[in-house]
Amino acid sequence: MLTQDQVLDEFRAAGALLEGHFILSSGLHSPRYLQCARVLMDGQRAGRLCATLAQKIDDAAFGKFDMVVSPAMGGVVVGYEMGRQLNVPAIFCERVDGNLVFRRGFDIEPGMRCIMVEDIVTTGLSSRECIEAIAQAGGETVGAACLIDRSGGKADVGVPLVALAQLEVPTFEADKLPPELAATEAVKPGSRGLKA
């Protein structure tokens, strides 16, 4: 099982722990960004990380579950790898008119027990929205998991959350930036709100 330091070393080795001025999916600004897509593009690395996350899910004793569900876009790859590791189906919900919904023939049978899996949790908004989509479809979310919890354990997703690593990365509202961040151009690397 990988330690938190080993997990972060995997991110560094993949060039996925970035420094600069970033606008997060939540709309908050941050001097650090974790680009999970860079980590997950290497199947061996994704396998190592998700094997440890699967062990943490087992240790959390969420009980029996039937499916892994993730929010698109960031949660898709990690969700499918977690489904493979946990030997259950994996599906995702995606944004339509600003709301997370199930498409592509995905559905959840009433009473299905689900694990919600994300790449990064910062405020927990996408996680909560995904959990709400699961409930609206008739499923029950018994627990949540993510690769990195950027909130340092402070984010409330509504169910118990396990993470490979916890970081407390500062975030700022756009009108409350520290001078050093305000002096640099912001980049928005996430997928929420993309337009063609």
Rank of each mutant, 00 (worst) to 15 (best):
17 L>W: 13
186 A>E: 11
104 R>M: 09
58 D>N: 09
66 D>Y: 05
43 G>F: 04
100 L>A: 06
111 G>W: 08
17 L>C: 00
162 V>C: 09
78 V>S: 15
72 A>G: 09
179 P>I: 02
172 F>C: 01
172 F>W: 10
92 F>E: 10
155 A>G: 15
143 G>K: 08
30 S>V: 00
95 R>W: 13
7 V>C: 14
175 D>R: 10
106 F>N: 12
84 R>Y: 10
18 L>Y: 07
53 L>T: 06
194 L>F: 13
190 G>Y: 02
40 L>V: 03
126 S>D: 12
168 E>G: 10
79 G>L: 10
139 G>Y: 11
74 G>Q: 03
56 K>D: 13
160 P>W: 07
126 S>R: 01
171 T>N: 11
55 Q>L: 12
73 M>G: 05
187 V>R: 14
143 G>C: 01
38 R>W: 14
44 Q>T: 14
192 R>W: 11
37 A>F: 06
21 H>D: 11
52 T>I: 02
51 A>Q: 15
57 I>G: 06
119 D>L: 01
148 I>L: 10
48 R>S: 01
123 T>F: 11
162 V>G: 09
96 V>C: 11
150 R>L: 04
182 A>M: 04
7 V>D: 09
22 F>A: 10
176 K>L: 01
142 V>N: 04
49 L>H: 12
152 G>T: 02
146 C>I: 01
153 G>H: 15
112 M>V: 00
176 K>Y: 02
139 G>D: 11
127 S>G: 13
156 D>S: 13
146 C>V: 08
119 D>I: 01
23 I>E: 15
8 L>W: 10
23 I>M: 11
103 R>L: 13
181 L>V: 15
194 L>N: 07
75 G>A: 07
151 S>A: 12
25 S>G: 07
26 S>W: 01
171 T>S: 09
